[in-house]
């Protein structure tokens, strides 16, 4: 039985929390910024193209400016030379923002355990969802997107910054 405002106005309105309403809207319209460096980026392209069609989940508006994006997909190997670039671009994204680390390289350096490769991007920026695979299949990336949507449901407040300000990466000293 309806109570409160819904009881008075009938079916013409829905009451909810502003938080939930905005999170619901965000969930289905993520704008990804693809930090694609290597082979994994090719699989991102496959995920975006017609067969796997990322737009079914509302994330097809790929932005090339970090300032317009709220989801960073790090797809590919990150070398130490690339680190300052990655960090700068991450910092240019505005809150709220989420990060997917796609593929073995971004997650842990993959099988490049050597002098030039960063052993996991989470030592530079905070990561929300890790995707295994070398490269992950496009379906795995879509699954990661669904995981991000789940995380959004859990956000406690839309006004609070979601990224932990105490996070310290290798370059933030």
């Amino acid at each position: 039985m309806a109570v409160g405002a819904e009881a008075i106005f009938g079916n013409s309105i829905v009451t909810t929390k502003l938080n939930s309403a905005i999170s619901w809207a965000r969930e289905s319209s993520m704008w990804p910024y693809v930090f694609g460096t290597a082979c994994c980026a090719i699989e991102f392209m496959s995920a975006a193209s017609s067969k796997f069609d990322i737009s079914r989940f509302g994330a097809e508006v790929v932005r090339f400016s970090p300032r317009q994006a709220d989801l960073m997909v790090v797809a590919g190997t990150i070398s130490h030379k690339q680190v300052p670039v990655l960090r700068k671009i991450y910092n240019q994204m505005t809150e709220p923002k989420w990060v997917i680390s796609m593929g073995a390289c971004a997650c842990s350096g993959g099988f490049y355990d050597n002098y030039t490769t960063l052993q996991g991007i989470d030592s530079i920026i905070p990561v929300d969802v890790y995707v295994a695979g070398c490269p992950p299949r496009p379906e795995a990336l879509l699954d990661a997107l669904l995981q991000i949507q789940k995380l959004q449901k859990k956000e406690e407040s839309i006004i609070k910054d979601r990224v932990n300000k105490n996070f310290k990466g290798q370059l933030d000293v």
Partner: peptide, 8 residues
Amino acid sequence: EIGYLHRG
């Protein structure tokens, strides 16, 4: 400038 994907 190259080398951003130098992975050894």
